[in-house]
Every structure is written in C-alpha cells, then in structure tokens.
Design a binder for these strands. Structure first.
Lengths: 361, 361
DNA sequence: TTGTACGCGTTATCAA
DNA sequence: TTGATAACGCGTACAA
C-alpha cells in the first residue's frame, strides 16, 4: 500500500445512517470495486466472492447510493412529469400510462403539479433541470404565455415531450389526440341531426386544445353550411363552474337567441352546462342537445347521459413515455406529433339514440 | 446587456452538455466557492461580484446540480410517495394534498405506483432508499403480508409515514380517518331505521381498512342488539366488480335469506352492488337499502344517490406530508396515529331522506 | 479476477 | 470577502 490513509473511515453507520460500499468491502477485506461489480451484476466476479458480497450487503442493509451513481454516470434514470391539474380524472390515467411504461424501462418519476400556474410551471422545469432528470413530460398550464421558455429548455439539450396540451414549433414532440378532427366529428353529429343554431362553450384560447377544438367546431359548421355566429361562441374554461357560468350567460338571453344544441369544450364544462339547463327546467336533449369531450368517469351517469369523445388517457401517457425514453436513449431523433385516436361515445344527451340503456356501466 | 439568443456555450468538455459552477467561475476568473455562495444566497459575498455571477450564470444557462449537492449534503429534499392505485379518485386527491404541503416546504415528490402489488411495493421502497429520499409516504398494497419489511425500513432510519392503509406497531406514524368509528356510525344509521337483517360486503381482511370497517360494522350491530350473521358478511374487495360479484352471491340465495340493507366497504363496491340489485329489478332503498364509504365522485350521481362516508382525501395527504416533513426535520419525534375526521353524507340510498335533491352537485 | 487512481459537481472548513 | 482543499459514494480505465 503506497499511500497513507487519509480517510478517517467510519466503521459504524455514522452520520447519514447509511451503509456504503466501502463498509461492505471492509467487512470482507476486499475493494469497493468488487462490491460495485457485484451490485451491478457484472460477470467478471468470482461466484464465491459474489455470494459473500451479497450476503454482507444484505446483512448490513446496504442500499447502493443512486445519487453518487447518477453523479458519475450523468444519468438519473428519472423522468420529470409535469401535470397541470391532478384532480381532473384524465391526468391520473395519463400518469398511470406513463408509469407503466417507465416501470417497464426502469425509469422513475418525479411528479410536479403546477395547478395551472405558469409560475409554478417554470419553477418546476428549473427544478427538474437541477435534479438532472433524463427527460421531461409536460402538459402546459392554461396560463401559458411564451413558448420561448420551452425553447430554451430544448436548446439546453433537455429531452422533452409534450402531452395533451402542447407547445408546437419549438423542436419538441407532442402526443395528443386529434382535437380538431374529433371536435369536428362530434359537431357534425349535431349538425347531422338538424339542430340549429349550435353554440360552442370554448376553452381558453391560450391553450392548444382550446384553440384546436374551436377550429374543429368551426370547420364542421362551415362544411355543414351553417353560420358560425360569434355570439354563440362563449369562451368558458375547463371547469364545471366555467361551463355553468357560460351556459347561464347564454340562457339569460331572450329565448329566441338560445342555441338548439351545444358543444362543450370538455366534460366538466358540459356538466356545468347541464346543471344550468336543468335549473331552468329545460330538458336534454328535447330542448337543448349537448355534447362534451373527454368521457369523464361521470359522463354516463348524468341525468342525460353525455355524448362525448373518449380520450385514451392511458394510451397518451404510454405513448408519451415511450417517445421520451427513446429520445433519451438516442433511439429516436425525429421530432413528431403523435396522434392517438379518440372515439365518439354516443349517449342520450345529443338525442341521437332513443333506447334507454341502464345507467350503471 | 440584452439577452443573447444562443445561450449555453460549453467551454470545457462537459459531455453531459451541462454548464457547471466551474465554468461560471472560469468565465469571471473567480473560484467555484464564490459561485456556490451566490447561488445559495449567502450574505458574505460582495454585491458587485454577486451580480456578476448571476449575470454569467444566466447567460451560460447554469443550473446548479442538485445531484452533486445532495451527495455532499446528504439531503435530497425529496419525498417518496407510494400509491397503490392511482386511478381510484381518492388517491389523486391525497397526492394533491401531499404536493401542496411539499411545495410549501420546498420538497419534491418521487411517485411510485404499486398497482396493488406487494412485489412492486418492495421494489419501490428499495428504489426510494437508493434514491436517498428524505422520507417516504406509503399506503400499503392490498396484498400486504409481512410488516417485517416495513420494520426494516424504519430500523434503517428512513422516516416513513403511512396514510390511509397503515401498518401499525412498527414505530411509524399513520394518518387516516377513523375507519372503525365511521363504519360504526354509518351502520348505526341503517339499524336506526329498522332494517333487519343487514349484510356487509367487506374488504380484504389483510388490509387495515378492510379489517377496521368490519370491526365497526360488528360493533354497531352488537350495540344495536342485532345478530351478526356470518353468512351475511361476504368478503368482497375494493373494486366495482368485487361488489357486483358479492352482491350477486347474496341475491342468488332464496329470497328469505336476502338482507334488507347492505353496508359496502367502499363506494366502488357499492356501485357494483347497485348494479347487481337493479339488474334483479329491485329498488333502492325500498327493497334493499345501501350505504358506501369514501364519497366517490360518482356517488351522488347513482340512480339511487349513495349515502356514504366522505373521506377528506386532500386533508389526509396534507397531514401526512406535514407529519413526515416535521419528522425529517427533527421537529417531531413522537410516533402517532393522526385521525382525520370523516363525515357522513346522507343521500337517498339508505332511505333516510325523502326529498329529491337535484342530482347534479 | 481483483485492485488503484481519479473524477463526477458540489459544499464545509479553514486559511488568507 | 474570497480561495484552496478535501470530502460525499460511486464507476471508468487502467494495472496487477
């Protein structure tokens, strides 16, 4: 041994209360490298020593320190997941999809909830960069203003994939359903049944999906030869209360100005609209027909079971994770928009079916 | 000086593509310690150099490396959250509570989903230990067998707080509602209305809440002078399908063996039971009365709006995070069971109210 | 098959 | 107010 030991080695578990590879090695009179090799399942270790190390590790309660490992390998095997609204049932399903895929590839998740706040979102991204996650999955907050911020993230070399609510044109991939096309299809349903006029409770126009669904609505109207009346497009929001307020605003007008049918930007907004409609003593769909978007767990249980678009949330999460991981691992270099197919769920609220199905799914 | 468009020019190797404190320091001809002091808002830095450092950091796109920081400080400022079932609406609410409290104290969350599997749960805990989280919040998987495993976690010095589904007697705190007492109260409701006999669709008896709710049921029955018949206690499960199967089993018996009322272990199970009851053409509560547990978001929307117990999920998450953080920071040394108050929500399914409230909340 | 030297990026400590 | 040095616990690249 050439050099004198300057290391005042702790033999007991000392300060951090944590056992290190050095202690496992010391216990057996071997080097830490052998311990390292065993823990990483390298083949070039004698079977006998391998078993000794494993036993000692077990006995001492050794847990390899991923922090130190990450520092040297410059990989954390961790993905940052930024969620704007954890309560909305759509996102937990997305998370489940992400989680399943991450688990399969042995990645872990750091969860950041922005509560729809752009400030918290920026903060979340900075934190994730500092935590050196290998990549980020992000759905933008409603209040998103500048894509420049996202662009900087991309330029700094952080792999990022957007899901559901995307920022386009900044060199990042996006996984979502075809919001525009889906909104077009479901609007067509109402048009096809002869309802006129048709109103739209829109989402915030800052948010990609709010914009896309409005576009789909307008396109269907144009194709159907309907007049798009600005006074029948009410910018609402994604929450039940938003839909309630917006619908009430419509119903506060004179009766002849009421819409005959309504396309809500999502199901919660539709629920609010339903409430407003029923409060007036009106019937759905006889007086006003209605469709939503997202197939919320409650949609089938409404007094008028809601016709809506089913968003395959799990699939979106899965695809997003899949894409991100392949970007991280250098297996995928193209920036792309991945579109997951959404399907219509026809129920009674649009007046398109007559049969009374049992309400419990 | 206005912003440069292309930030982050790497000078040295920096294979990870990441700017380090060394590079910021080199740029200014100072030491990394000064950079460190500035980033950590230490007071003993000259105001002028402080500004220079901040400017250089900004320009280079420097993000302090939390990994390295964690290694030396032996603190990650991260909490591991283990969730058995992310889809059940209860847990996202808990997570929101945890997240809010963690955010307030500047902690971050690593989310682990066990999908009710004990294997994945063990794996999750080992990973969290390796990731050196500062503490763990855990709700046990249904298949939990040995508390010994949890005990080892505690003995290794990892702060851990259980929530909702707890492991007792191992020196860890627990945050939950008073399941036994709540089950007792809601069963009492049925007894008070003269229903007899009363059945219980129980949860798995391996899980703390399954056990506690059964105890509460039995206690109420005993206090009410009712006979507890083993054949009317059916071990079901927490899912809708479990409740459906269990209820069908009851209804497959001769009519005189049917219960007059049913206490379901939770709302999803109650939903399944409702389905089974309605399929037979029976009415709720006229033929069979029913109560659930948890106030699922769908409870009010059932054909027979469900009387249930509201679990303050957000509050549970908040309390659990609060307790864990104070344990981590050495401000709380006692092991305790924290009980969050749950309240009954009386709706029509128990036949206790007559008025027909609007179904949309 | 096993071990040694060094570096990953940061902070505590002590000296200047 | 600032800087030099030594950890933190591990893996890479070599040497033995």
């Amino acid at each position: 041994m050439p050099k004198s030991k300057k290391t005042a080695t702790r033999f007991t578990g000392a300060a951090s209360g944590r056992v290190t590879a050095r202690e496992v090695a010391a216990r057996l009179g071997i080097s830490t490298m052998t311990v390292s090799r065993v823990m990483n399942k390298r083949s070039n270790v004698d079977e006998k020593t391998r078993r000794l190390v494993l036993a000692a590790a077990q006995e001492l309660g050794y847990r390899p320190n991923h922090i130190a490992k990450s520092l040297v390998l410059r990989r954390t095997h961790t993905i940052g997941v930024v969620v704007p609204e954890i309560t909305h049932s759509f996102f937990p399903e997305v998370i489940r999809g992400i989680e399943e895929e991450a688990y399969r590839s042995r990645y872990h998740l750091i969860l950041m909830h922005t509560a729809e706040s752009i400030e918290r979102e920026k903060d979340a991204i900075l934190t994730l960069e500092s935590k050196r996650v290998d990549g980020i999955l992000l759905s933008t907050a409603q209040s998103v203003a500048d894509a420049d911020f996202y662009k900087e993230v991309v330029q700094l070399g952080m792999p990022i994939v957007f899901y559901d609510r995307c920022a386009h044109g900044i060199g990042a991939s996006c996984v979502s359903i075809d919001d525009e096309e889906s909104a077009r299809r479901i609007t067509n349903h109402l048009i096809g049944h002869g309802y006129d006029p048709i109103a739209h409770l829109s989402g915030p126009q800052r948010v990609s999906i709010g914009l896309a669904r409005l576009r789909g609505f307008k396109q269907a109207m144009a194709e159907g030869g309907m007049v798009v009346r600005d006074d029948l497009i009410v910018e609402a929001g994604f929450h039940e209360s938003d839909g309630y307020t917006a619908m009430k605003k419509l119903l506060d007008r004179p009766r002849e100005a009421w819409p005959r049918a309504v396309v809500a930007v999502n199901d919660p907004a539709a629920f609010g609209a339903i409430k407003a409609i029923l409060e007036r003593g009106l019937r759905i769909p006889q007086d006003i027909a209605l469709v939503g978007f997202s197939d919320d767990i409650r949609a089938a249980l409404m007094p008028a079971p809601l016709t809506t678009i089913r968003q395959p949330a799990y699939e979106i999460g899965k695809q997003a994770a899949l894409k991100l991981i392949s970007v991280i691992e250098g297996k995928s270099l193209v920036v792309e928009d991945i579109v997951v197919k959404a399907e219509e769920v026809i129920r009674e609220s649009c007046g398109c079916v007559k049969k009374n199905e049992p309400k419990v799914a």
